[in-house]
Design a protein around this nucleic acid. Structure first.
Lengths: 208, 208
DNA sequence: CGCTATTTTAAACGTATGTTTAAACTAGGT
DNA sequence: ACCTAGTTTAAACATACGTTTAAAATAGCG
């Protein structure tokens, strides 16, 4: 395995667990068993390393996601919201084949990116991957055309919040759930739980 | 104003904006116009300062919240979910009288507490303020008795995520919304938007 | 006033961070 | 084998952090 990939793998895991601010280059390079200077040699800076970790996932995910939404919108002119959100399942879970714990890690990273580092990652994602965002908005628009753009804006951000927050603390939540309910659950179980929730939230009656 | 309060005010604002990890004691003391050593003199450590900032709000909020939920449950044996969540409005907005931007700051701090600092703040809140949490669970239980404890667990955490995430980036979201829709909105407007969403999410039909 | 206890101050401490340097090492090609 | 381009390494760099120290200033009280 190349030094570059060893760094990316170690950084991904640590960033997901402890956030970007909370992880030092020395932790990363010691877990990756490479020299400290290797990060700056291969990536230039810590900020660029963060972008590289996210890009590896986004490049894997965004085409799958776009085609899933495309397929859905071609199959039926007015899909249901549950169908729209369910279109995320297969692309998201495919990240587990791409890499161990890929789904969970990616979603946790996404959560970190929104709260750590004063939103520079949000800017990076929305400017670098705008098409997948607009296909998603388009699909929701078809599913619930009565929603005004403003209400849709808020509800999609609420949805983002639900998913991203849940996933950024999913390890702790899964632990609690297993202790309290004696029931094994994994990331795909959480996804199954969250879809009805966000679909109903977006579908909520419009406030008077 | 006392040194202690100057520190608390400055810390609160900076913690809300940039997170606990992202804010240094030097930033806090320079904004508060006090000496660097004053933090350790008055609070002992940065960790204790974080607790003090949160406690100031929790001590203000939790009795109001508990009595609001109590009142609702006394008025009607089976309140609606919208009523349960609406019981949060007055106590939360009362923080604005307690302190400028109090509502927004507190909710942002809550969001930071869940993602920063590896959940030590979550432990602090759940152990220090358990009664308000259980009154809330009790109220939701009455509003939607068919919900199993496990489903309730997940949906309440989804709700927590929606609120906390939205509020921790509410400044940015309000900016975007104002640019895109030419419409002034404030924190209470966001609360009005979020209540139908979370109520519908919690009320979602139980997955088969 | 004079004494004591509390608070404030400037300076330093030790540690940790991201980054840079320059030398050592390691292929790959001719 | 030799040179070169790419890579790895140990060491140092400058800066920032939370915390501690001990002296100076302030306040409260008899």
């Amino acid at each position: 395995m190349s030094t570059k990939n060893k760094i990316l793998d170690a950084a991904e895991q640590l960033f997901a667990d402890k956030g970007f601010n909370g992880t030092s280059l020395r932790e990363i390079t010691s877990q990756a068993e490479v020299n400290l200077a290797a990060v700056n040699y291969h990536f230039g800076s810590k900020k660029e390393l963060i972008k590289a970790v996210m890009s590896r996932y986004m490049n894997e995910l965004s085409p799958r996601l776009e085609s899933a939404l495309q397929t859905l919108c071609n199959q039926e002119a007015q899909p249901s919201l549950v169908e729209v959100f369910s279109a995320f399942i297969e692309p998201l879970l495919s990240l587990n084949a791409f890499k161990e714990n890929g789904t969970s890690n990616f979603l946790q990273l996404l959560g970190r990116g929104y709260t750590d580092s004063q939103g520079f990652l949000r800017w990076f994602l929305t400017t670098q991957y705008p098409t997948v965002i607009s296909s998603f908005i388009n699909a929701v628009q078809r599913a619930y055309p009565e929603l005004t753009p403003e209400e849709m804006f808020w509800r999609l951000h609420f949805t983002m919040g639900t998913v991203v927050f849940t996933m950024s603390s999913s390890d702790a939540l899964i632990d609690i759930a297993q202790n309290d309910f004696n029931k094994t659950i994994d990331i795909s179980g959480v996804i199954q739980q969250v879809i009805p929730y966000v679909a109903a939230g977006v579908a909520a009656p419009i406030a008077p």
